[in-house]
Amino acid sequence: MEASKGIVRRWGRPVNAGLMGLVVLVILLVVFYTNTFNAGISSSPDKWSAFGTFFGGLLGPGISLVTLIALLRTIDLQLDQGAHFVEDGHKARLAEYKASQLQLIDQQILMYERMIDRYEDEGQRLFSLNRELGRHGPFDLSRVDESLKKAEGEVALLIKLSVAISLSEFQTIEQLRLRMLADLCSINPHLYGSP
């Protein structure tokens, strides 16, 4: 909205002033012509030719100037509109990339949830096996419990990352990509690699 106001300030006033100037010039020329050559309406083609030459010679440059200003305004508007299209395209690509990164985080959360389900199933199996064999050692269960807690912690971090990414404003795709890479690597450097 501010850009369009700037364009009106920059080009709208000169075009409007030029048009008003042309209207004033036409009125002045008609008054001048009728006062100087007050011969009334003539049936002679020579007088009409002289009349046309008089007005064309005096109004032509003014009309050309206003046309040039209007043409420059049109070019300026097209350049401004092109800049808006480029900016809108950049924003659309960034929003699309952000959505794909959020979808990636959702897939990672689902992967972790499947891992948690497997850990819970393995814990149940080991607990039942220990009960059947009469063992009371928590060694096998403690490893499963540690893996389960680690996976749940990483899910919580992924959820926090998803919220942070969705609420953050990014200027470039590269800025978003670097943030994702750094945060994913801090969550699990073995799975996501190090930055």
Rank of each mutant, 00 (worst) to 15 (best):
E169A: 06
V24H: 06
T34F: 05
L157I: 00
R118E: 14
L157F: 09
E154V: 01
F170C: 04
S128W: 09
Y97G: 03
F37S: 05
L58N: 05
Q103K: 15
V86E: 11
M115W: 13
V144P: 02
G137D: 11
Q103P: 03
S49K: 12
R179L: 10
T172P: 03
F32C: 04
L158M: 08
R10T: 05
N35R: 13
A99P: 01
S43R: 14
F127M: 07
R135N: 15
L158S: 01
A17D: 15
L79D: 09
K160D: 14
P195K: 12
E87M: 11
D183W: 03
L126R: 07
V31Q: 04
L161S: 00
V30C: 02
Q78F: 13
V23A: 14
V86C: 02
L148P: 01
S44W: 09
G21A: 14
K47R: 13
Y119S: 04
Q175Y: 03
D183A: 09
E122H: 08
A99G: 01
I165S: 01
N38L: 01
I41T: 07
N188L: 05
N16M: 14
G56C: 03
P195C: 14
P14C: 05
I165Y: 04
I69F: 06
F55W: 03
L59H: 02
L161H: 00
S147V: 00
Y112N: 06
I27T: 05
Y112A: 08
T53C: 05
P195G: 09
G60V: 02
L126K: 13
G123S: 13
S49G: 12
Q103I: 07
G12L: 03
L167C: 08
I63R: 00
S162N: 11
F139C: 01
G60Y: 04
Y192P: 01
R93W: 09
Q107S: 13
T67A: 12
I41E: 07
K91P: 02
I159Q: 12
Q124I: 02
R114F: 11
L79H: 08
T74V: 06
Q101D: 07
C185W: 11
I109R: 00
S166A: 11
S42T: 08
Q107Y: 11
L72Y: 05
W48G: 02
W11Y: 12
F85D: 10
L181D: 14
L28M: 06
H84N: 13
L94H: 00
S42P: 03
